[in-house]
Design a protein around this nucleic acid. Structure first.
Lengths: 161, 161
DNA sequence: ATTTTTTTGTTAGTATACGAACCATTCGTG
DNA sequence: CACGAATGGTTCGTATACTAACAAAAAAAT
């Protein structure tokens, strides 16, 4: 098994763990991780626009809209169209939303956070740096486009069963 | 901003990059990453059961079923109920599926793989180990419901063989 | 032999998550 | 000022991904 495949497996496990936790959260508190994250963002900057939220948390506007739909249906947030620029929609937490947010746990497993913070400072730094590097390597896409390649290997191994 | 929050941001970026690539793949080749991974699994072991696939790639059976539905609709795979144990369903690639799989690119950005493999051996190992550690820290959940100590006797699947 | 439990796969319902297409609205340029 | 371009948000269609509830079959227990 190739090393990058193992990396992919580990990555899938991480993604899955995050998803499972989000679902567990939802069952227990009625809020998912993405919903919590969006609400945190609103709490941080009342009246923030949909676009801004999307940019801040690296999601598309469409996704944020659908999350906001659910939050609005449960009266955790309200939308308010801007008067000065009628394209923009400002989002606010309701009273209800504030208390929900305050009572909610963190959007990441507490025990992961505990374990992470129990590590040595340098280890935390190291882990973060590695993750950021992976992110960069995956996102580069348009940035690098040059070095270390040049090798015209476009084919794919012919699956020797 | 807490360090673990930064970690979460990086993680989200990685997840997003993987998802975006999958969607790009789908547009270009008609197959998503999860579909490719499932097909690879079938190619690796013809007639494998749904459950086995799910276990191998760490997904729920329900998810695999829905992926298989789509693959079957496009005639890339066929399902065949076992005669000896009628609960089980064996999955096979069709001729069509084989060629599709052979012509498809890897389920992870080629340029990520290139960059990964361009790293020093020890760096690859280190990156992989870090990712596995994160995965383990997130999955522990049931394993270490109690102490962080108690070192000796928790028997978890050793990833390092 | 009959009942209970476990295993396997599917279906239903829900929540992300995206791009593309679509409206308004606003901005920039001629 | 007017008209094309850009911006902001929503809607639509699609694909993951999960749990829970189900049905059918096989295995275990009584």
């Amino acid at each position: 098994m190739q090393k990058y495949e193992e990396l992919l497996v580990a990555l899938r496990q991480v993604i899955r763990a995050i998803d499972l936790y989000s679902k567990k959260l939802n069952k227990e508190t009625g809020l998912t991780s993405p919903q919590l994250i969006v609400m945190q963002e609103i709490a941080l900057c009342d009246g923030v626009t949909v676009k801004k939220i999307a940019d801040n948390i690296t999601l598309s506007s469409a996704t944020v809209t659908s999350i906001l739909d659910r939050l609005e249906a449960r009266k955790f947030i309200i939308r308010q169209r801007s008067a000065t620029d009628k394209r923009k929609v400002g989002v606010h937490l309701t009273e209800n939303g504030h208390t929900a947010l305050e009572n909610a746990p963190k959007p990441l497993q507490e025990h992961f956070i505990n374990r992470f913070e129990a590590m040595e400072e340098w280890e935390q730094t190291q882990m973060l740096a590695t993750m950021q590097r992976v992110a960069k390597m995956m996102n580069a896409e348009d940035l690098d486009a040059s070095p270390l390649l040049e090798v015209g290997q476009i084919q794919q191994p012919t699956l020797t069963s």
